[in-house]
Design a binder for these strands. Structure first.
Lengths: 153, 153
DNA sequence: TTTTGATCGTTACGGGTGCAACAAATTTCG
DNA sequence: CGAAATTTGTTGCACCCGTAACGATCAAAA
């Protein structure tokens, strides 16, 4: 029936551009790549390094496992990011008195300075991103995301 | 003022878990990883290979550049995915009569078979994903995503 | 036609990534 | 207590990735 151009189309076809996993990835990639330019060009940070910086900036002192749990990163990513920031003296490891397997990670003054510099830039980026759509759409997006995070995250 | 625990917090801090680029990445990663398990375990496909398969399944015949444009992939990703699917005889290259730089890519019968097998599984995955949230939240999410795609994609 | 510039797709390269294996330390439990 | 199981973080490995450079081809301009 109808005028299909080849055998795989019609009801059997999937519209990739309407497929949710694809759409999420596309958006996340575009947004992330845009934002990553900031901390990459400015400080040569990778995304795991930025997340580590952001997590320690927010919470002050944590173990590597706690960083990974909070920032949704694999422990190897955290480990490598810690090594990198330590090498720049943006982070220090303090042995934990109660558990010798772990170190308590914290930003140095230099690290905290970079963090404080990036925070308003991040806020601005997010605000400008949301400003591109209407208040209604914005509210809908945030509500929908929240719901999916509750159900899936 | 107030009971801050360390100097980087308070107004200066950024809540990573509420930061939009982070939230998008987290969700996209979780959703994609979940869905990727299907085509990875079933057929050993990578994500670029799945996207190539999905694009050719949907459109029939395209050049590599067109595949990249439609599926938001870098040309090197497309190139490598084409090589991989060609090696499995799931895809053929036909020289273009008008432009000798390009090949017209199309799925073989074997490739189309895999595509037709995966489509209903993909649909099912998406449907089950959306079924986890309420109809209101679902509508909000889709409206919000659409708006952001219009403004940003 | 000849020159110049743009486009298409591939590949080497440096670097990021998850998996699995591992040592060290801690916790559990008999 | 002491053996077994678990947790924590690091590293080797194979693989994936984007950048840049490249040859080939096509399009535009002279």
């Amino acid at each position: 029936m109808s005028s299909s151009r080849h055998e795989t189309m019609d009801a059997a076809a999937l519209e990739l551009e309407n497929f949710l996993p694809y759409r999420f990835n596309r958006l996340a990639d575009a947004v992330s790549r845009d934002f990553a330019r900031i901390y990459k060009e400015r400080h040569g940070l990778t995304r795991p390094e930025w997340r580590l910086l952001a997590t320690l900036g927010q919470y002050g002192t944590m173990t590597a496992t706690a960083v990974g749990r909070h920032s949704a990163m694999h422990k190897t990513k955290v480990s490598r990011a810690v090594t990198a920031l330590e090498k720049r003296h943006w982070l220090t490891r303090l042995p934990d008195g109660a558990d010798r397997r772990v170190d308590n990670l914290a930003l140095t003054k230099a690290g905290a300075r970079v963090y404080r510099e990036l925070v308003p830039i991040a806020r601005d980026f997010e605000q400008k991103l949301l400003a591109r759509i209407s208040p209604q759409d914005r509210a809908a997006l945030l509500a929908g995301l929240r719901a999916l995070e509750r159900a899936f995250g």
